[in-house]
Design a protein around this nucleic acid. Structure first.
Lengths: 343, 343
DNA sequence: TTTTAGCACTCTCACTATGAGAGTGCTAAA
DNA sequence: TTTAGCACTCTCATAGTGAGAGTGCTAAAA
């Protein structure tokens, strides 16, 4: 299927117009609004061809045309010129990041928030996560009585904390001693390496080693880091979702970590860092996303830490702008990760 | 305004029926459905009286009656008998908490999730937060080059982490030494106490002390801890929100931390731990909540660490059940906090 | 061969009846 | 004080109607 330049133009204009109005686009309207140097009849003929190609759809005989999912896919794949965000916008965003508290969590929240605001849609950001969990440092802090706070730091900067109930109270000195010993022995080990250290410790150290081991295994098993969402309500404001249940279903998908991990695993995980993936109308695989599109990217250092970011909005989405925004934020996060978290 | 027993009965039944059907309730329906030993005419008369008292409303002449906000308020204040959750439900919930990973964050997420599922509404949980930030422990962990991860633990178990960019690389030994010294000197100090220690350190230690101080001040200034939300989409499923914009506005309120802190500050912060506060239809103060009700409670240890939990749903909410659930979860969290986080 | 004017045709949407159904308030009797 | 009876009101679902927007086709023009 090769389109003539004129067909490409008409498809682009229809998509452009439909994104603005959320209404079917008619031939006459199109000619008037964009001052086309051809008659509406010509446009009609081209529209008929594009409809034959399944790039356009007619909600009913004698309504205007609406881009089909395939139409959007063709548009995204062939007609979008790689635009970048305006310099001022980019400056503003970068500025916000360097102004914020120096903390990964803050950055990720900020990324989700900026993404949601710029795209006026729902956004998601997953924390950078290493495929392999490598031990870096352990701290044990006595809180009250037999309760001890364990802080585990991984290579790459992921931090996990949890409480441990000991059989009997242990003074902080003793805890620090164990923590130091464990830290020195385990550094740069993965779960297997740590498992091999069993038997080098007294009973208390052994207990803590086991808990540490369980935690490392747990981390390895999870496919993504913590998930941050923002802008859920932006989606609800779109006219196509005002009455139906579709938006609710799509937002549910985002909020159910297992479902979302699934989605990410089968899409963006296969993408290179820097690449963009666009999922239009669920592509037949995601029933809940029939009315939605998702723009996804991966950020971070491909060899060590990576995370995903994305935007969920209606199929009728300004793809060029959204893609530019997602790409830009992904780059910003990649820079931050490589500056602060590099191994 | 004193109601007769019969009026109380009728008001209760109307509310009960309306909560189930989301429709105006007529006199005849009421008599039939609840096998009342009086005629519909009598019910009509009582309804007229209750309408005079502004406890009921008529959407239009010759429709059934709908409880007014005042009606709900009277119901919550006078007609709800302090019911508790069924034992099996309570067991299930408690079990889930003791099964989960031993980590405050997990508990709070779980609390939000259970609350949302039990009440089929949106839930919110704020992390336990001390009015006064008291230093407990500091760790400094070298990551790469000049980047250092600072982990700050407060009395009560709040943990904050952030990255510090040093002027030049510093070996881990040196960092540990500084951290230990700071930890020993600052323990049990508030921000002022720490400020008094300025000048006791070499330049590097001084820099870190300043960052620590800034962080402590920041914590003191924030009114609540981290906020966890769940079940947003439950609200969207309610029939009264299927078309209007009201749900979106209410959910926006929850997701905007500053607005939410504001709301909490002027309501639940004035409540005792263990007490329940019910905010019906925004009570004239919260325009975005005109169509919603919120059930709030505080948990934790009144003298040290407290947090808030709550449920947001339509005004037409099963108050007795929701209140029992909120109260129960608040107690569970209070127990967990006092067991693990006590000073 | 491509483009365009003209025209009959189609389908939606907003608007206007219309009538069944549910519910009310009032009156007068029990 | 309660209740049966009745006239009245208001909504909601249904159907009919006409204006408006848009199409596809045909035949003429470029």
């Amino acid at each position: 299927m090769r389109l003539t330049d004129r067909q490409k133009l008409i498809l682009t204009l229809i998509i452009h117009e439909h994104i603005q109005t959320a209404q079917p686009v008619g031939s006459k309207t199109l000619v008037q609004k964009y001052h086309l140097s051809m008659s509406s009849a010509t446009v009609r003929n081209e529209m008929a061809t594009l409809t034959d190609y399944n790039l356009l759809r007619q909600p009913h005989t004698s309504a205007g045309r609406v881009p089909s999912e395939e139409g959007y896919r063709y548009f995204v794949g062939n007609l979008i010129h790689n635009s970048t965000l305006p310099t001022t916008t980019r400056r503003t965003i970068t500025h916000q990041f360097y102004q914020s508290r120096q903390d990964v969590e803050q950055w990720l929240k900020l990324a989700a928030s900026v993404l949601a605001n710029q795209s006026q849609a729902a956004s998601l950001v997953t924390a950078p996560h290493a495929e392999k969990a490598i031990f870096k440092h352990l701290e044990l802090i006595a809180t009250s009585g037999r309760q001890v706070l364990m802080v585990l730091v991984l290579m790459g900067g992921e931090i996990r904390q949890q409480f441990i109930s000991l059989a009997e109270p242990v003074p902080q000195d003793r805890l620090s001693e164990i923590a130091t010993k464990l830290s020195n022995l385990c550094v740069r080990c993965d779960a297997e390496g740590i498992a091999r250290l069993r038997g080098h410790f007294d009973p208390l150290g052994q207990d803590i080693l086991d808990i540490l081991l369980a935690e490392m295994t747990l981390i390895e098993e999870s496919a993504t880091g913590q998930i941050y969402l923002d802008g859920m309500t932006n989606v609800l404001a779109e006219p196509e979702f005002s009455e139906s249940d579709d938006a609710r279903q799509a937002l549910n998908l985002l909020q159910e970590p297992s479902l979302l991990e699934n989605l990410l695993a089968s899409t963006v995980m296969n993408t290179d860092v820097g690449g963009i993936q666009v999922l239009i109308g669920g592509e037949g695989n995601w029933e809940q996303l029939r009315q939605c599109s998702i723009v996804l990217a991966r950020y971070g250092d491909p060899n060590t830490l990576t995370g995903s970011i994305g935007v969920l909005g209606p199929i009728r989405m300004p793809y060029d702008r959204t893609i530019s925004t997602v790409r830009f934020i992904a780059n910003v996060l990649s820079d931050l990760v490589s500056e602060t978290l590099a191994v």
